[in-house]
Structure formats: C-alpha cells, structure tokens
Design a binder for these strands. Structure first.
Length: 465
RNA sequence: GGGCCGGUAGCUCAGGUGGUAGAGCAUUUGCCUUUUAAGCAAAGGGUCGCGGGUUCGAGUCCCGCCCGGCUCACCA
C-alpha cells in the first residue's frame, strides 16, 4: 500500500473512533460568537489582566498546527486567513473531549468553546472547555512551513492554495475590492449595469478568434462572445445612455502570463461624450480603484512604483517618434518598440483607422480615429474610443474588414447587419471603453501572471485513466 | 508553434564523473498539563512523470511522449 493510501485509510479509520466517542465526523451547525479575525481584532491587544474576569468565546476553524504534550496540548485554528491558538487540557475538557483532541489531524475542522487567556509566552489563546467536531480531512495538508509551492498543483487545486498560502487569499480579496470599487464609481455616475449575450450568432466588438458551440434545438452554431461591445451600443441606441457590463469574454487564442482564454472585462458606454471625456473619466476611475483596492494611488509592481495619481497622455505618433508613419506600420512599430516601455500609466491616443473598425474618425484627419489605449507596466489594460455612429461609414468599415477576411485575416470583423440597422435609427455621440479586470488586478496585487489573479485558470486536464 | 528550465516520499527539497534512493515536515508508537518550525526516543513510507534504448547495472546517459514554468511569436 502506498503512503498516500495508508494515510487515507488511517483517517477513514479515525471516523469510527470519532463516532465511538459520540461525535459526528461530519458535524452539525456551529453557532460561533466570533470569527477568528474578530477575536484577534477585538482582543489582540488586550493584556492578560484585561481579559479578566472571563471572556467566553465559541470559535471554529481548520486545524493548522497541533502540539501535543501528554495530558494537554495546543493547536492553531485557521479561519478566514488568520490563526488563533487554542489550549486543550484534559482536566478542563474531560475524558471524552480530550480523547477527541488526541485523534485530531491537521486539516480537521473543529469548533471550540472556552475563554480567552494569554499563555506564558504572551499569545492570545482560547482555554478550551468544550470541543466540537465539524468535519474530517481524509487527505494530508501541505507542509506547514513552506506551504504549497508547486505551481501546477496550486492552480489545479486552488482550494489547497487558498488554505496554505495566505497571500493568495489576499489577491482575490483585492480583486473583489477592485470590482466593487468600479461598480460603486460607475453607479455613482448614473451608469446602469446590464448583461448581454455570451452566446452570439455573430461575434464582434474585437479582433479575435472565437470559440464555437452549437445549440441543439435551434440547430445553429453560436459563438462565445469575444466582446459585449455591439450589444451595449444597441442599448445606447435604445436610450440606456450610460450602461456597463463586467463579465467574461472568450478568445480562442494563445495562453500566456498575460492571456487566459476567458477573461473579465469592464465595458462602459456614455452618451454625449467623446474620447477626451473618457480620458478624464479613466484617470479618475483608475486612481480611485487603486486607492480603494490598495489604500494608495502608488502601488509597487515587480519592483517599480506605479503612480495612478496622474496619467500621462501621448499620441501614438509622438510615442513612436516618427510622424511619417501611418496605418498598420505605425501600430506595428508602436507595439514592437514602445508598448513594453510604458511602465507608468499612459494613455496613447489617435489610432489609425485601419485597425479601428468601430471608432469615429478624427474630423480634421480622417485616416486617424478618436481612440486611446491605456498602458501600465508594459501591458494594455484599457481600450476606448469615440464610437462610430454613422451607419453608412460603419457599413464601409465592415466591408473593409470583410476584404481583410477574404485575404485570410481570421481575426477580421464580421458584418453585423442588425448593428448597422441599430445605428441607422440614430445613436447619440458616445464614448465607450473596456478595461481588462484581470490585468488591472495583476498590477494592483503585484502578480506576475494572469493565472495568479484568476481562481481557476485554464490548464490542460490531466487524465485519471 | 520555437527556445530554455523543471517533474524524486502526502508536502518542501538533496541526490559531481552510472553502482540496489536521502533529509526536514507530516504519519505511527512511547514519554511529556503554557507550547509555538515544542521536545526526547523509536518505526513505517518511493512504479525517481510515462515509454523505449545504451549498459553487467540507469533517478543519473540517449530518443520519443505527457504535464507544468519562463520566454519569443500571436493576442487584450
């Protein structure tokens, strides 16, 4: 028998022992008086005297460490990323509870009832009077000192990663704060949150290859959306003048430290503004989000201080430093030579029309459009433009894209007749923007890989024969 | 897809030039009523990612494959 099986059988055997003592191996509801973080916040700085006469608590958590010393012992309970020590002695808990304590494994989930005290070395602890068994672990936990380090296991078994590595938990708490901050700011400005189709008969709103799926009853192929853009603008036509969506996009392309096949975008549209208005708004949104998520406008990313307090604005032609370049050549040089050097938050504006099929032309320079992208730490995190609202020009742009598709460009835009029809009813002048939530989270959590900010990144599945 | 790196006990890792696989944590047993990487004593635990090959002999050398990481290309 392998060690793994041996450990498993050992613990299955322990279920019988737990039940023989009158406990359930998979216990009942446990009403606690405090979470462990609450105990630490409330009593963490109280002296032994201040804990008298008696502070009674009921707390629950997962056993993180055990130190047994004959007829007494200690354990640390882990809950919500924080640890509280408990002290169990035979003469305080009685025969039965002490027998239960003696058979505990690291990873078991228990509840304790008792009172707070300070140990000789000063650690705030619970002097246990009753022990409750809540859930049995059958598998052994990662090592207490190094935690779980194997990157593949961390992604495949994120639950273990979350138990063993407190900083992982923090990343995802920060991610939630980022999303909450953006929602709060958009709500405050009168934006309405909406949901638009993930399953789309025509995919659009970006240049990318899609995932294809099939609906059986309708017997049609559908695409997982690559962007919600065209639907959101239909809503602007419909009079929802400020809308946003925070949701997943799917792109059937490469995987890297900056790309996951499904990723989360914020897209928002505001009628009666343009890309200059969006630059002002973006600056404020990013500054406030950094502040809400990290407590500071200046964050450290991979050794660089990134300042969201003021965002530089530069035209693409200035950034490239060659005013004669245009079209695809300009973008190519920009991406090859400039993009990775944009460490501080930077808005790069005025894109060639060729790469921007949905953006409005600059009136005085129609070969350029009113578009900008936001770069931070060498990564594109946002893309925004004054929306093209002339249906006849939009049709010409789609036709340009179809011509590219004919030449083999698999990422060229499809024709969307209903979108052109929607524009034909009249869309107000509108600014629209997308912000990549995953990449923004990378920067605000100092994460090197997009997989570190996505709970379950896509990995090739392993065969279980 | 290309290049580089990695996969050894449940976890974290050692294993120059080939010679029957080690440590710490975890586990088991004993002792221990304020410990905290508790301690002391003892024990068990491995298809060395998978498959071929070279060799008397492969964790180690060669070939192929699988999985992962980084990076380049592509993309957001």
């Amino acid at each position: 028998m392998s060690l793994e099986d041996e450990l498993y059988e050992q613990r299955v055997g322990r279920i019988a022992e737990i039940e023989a003592l009158g406990f359930s191996a998979y216990g009942q509801r446990f009403d606690f008086t405090h979470t462990i973080p609450q105990v630490l916040t409330e009593y963490g700085d109280k002296s032994a005297e201040q804990l008298g006469p008696r502070v009674g608590v009921r707390v629950a958590g997962r056993i993180a460490t055990i130190r047994r010393m004959g007829k007494a012992g200690f354990a640390h309970l882990l809950q919500n990323g924080e640890r509280l020590q408990v002290y169990v002695r035979k003469d305080a808990v009685g025969e039965k509870d002490f027998a239960l304590y003696e058979g505990l494994d690291i990873g078991d989930i228990v509840g304790v009832e008792g009172y707070l005290f300070r140990t000789r070395t000063g650690e705030l602890s619970v002097h246990v009077e009753h022990l409750y068994f809540l859930a049995k672990t059958l598998l052994s936990m990662p090592e207490k000192w190094h935690g779980l380090e194997d990157i593949e296991t961390r992604y495949r078994q994120r639950y273990l990663d979350l138990i063993a590595n407190p900083e992982v938990r923090r990343v995802f708490l920060t991610r939630a704060k980022i999303v909450a901050s953006l929602r709060r700011q958009l709500e405050a400005r009168g934006f309405l949150e909406v949901e638009t189709p993930m399953l789309q008969p025509i995919y659009g709103g970006a240049a990318a290859r899609p995932f294809v799926t099939h609906h059986n009853t309708l017997d049609i192929d559908l695409y997982l959306r690559i962007a919600p853009e065209l639907y959101l603008k239909r809503l602007v036509v419909g009079g929802l003048e400020r809308v946003y969506e925070i949701n997943r996009n799917f792109r059937n392309e490469g995987i890297s430290t900056q790309h996951n096949p499904e990723f989360t975008m914020l897209e928002f549209y505001q009628a009666y503004t343009d890309y200059h208005g969006l630059m002002d708004l973006s600056e404020e949104l990013l500054r406030q989000t950094a502040l809400d998520a990290t407590g500071s406008e200046v964050v450290e990313y991979q050794g660089e201080k990134i300042d969201f307090g003021k965002i530089r604005r530069v035209s693409m032609r200035e950034a490239v430093g060659n005013p004669s370049l245009k079209g695809h050549n300009l973008v190519e040089v920009f991406e090859r030579q400039v993009e990775s050097t944009l460490i501080q938050p930077t808005m790069v504006y005025d894109y060639p029309v060729e790469v921007s099929p949905l953006s409005k032309n600059k009136p005085e320079e129609p070969e350029f459009v009113e578009r900008f992208e936001i770069y931070v730490a060498g990564m594109e995190i946002g893309n925004a433009f004054t929306e093209l609202n002339d249906p006849r020009e939009q049709r010409r742009r789609f036709e340009m894209q179809l011509a590219l598709r004919e030449k083999g460009d698999q990422e060229a835009h499809q024709m969307d007749e209903d979108y052109v029809r929607a524009l034909s009813y009249g869309m107000p002048p509108t600014g629209g923007e997308g912000i990549g939530i995953d990449r923004l989270t990378m920067i605000l959590t100092n994460s090197r890989s997009i997989r570190d900010v996505i709970l379950f990144p896509l990995l090739r599945p392993v065969d279980h024969e």
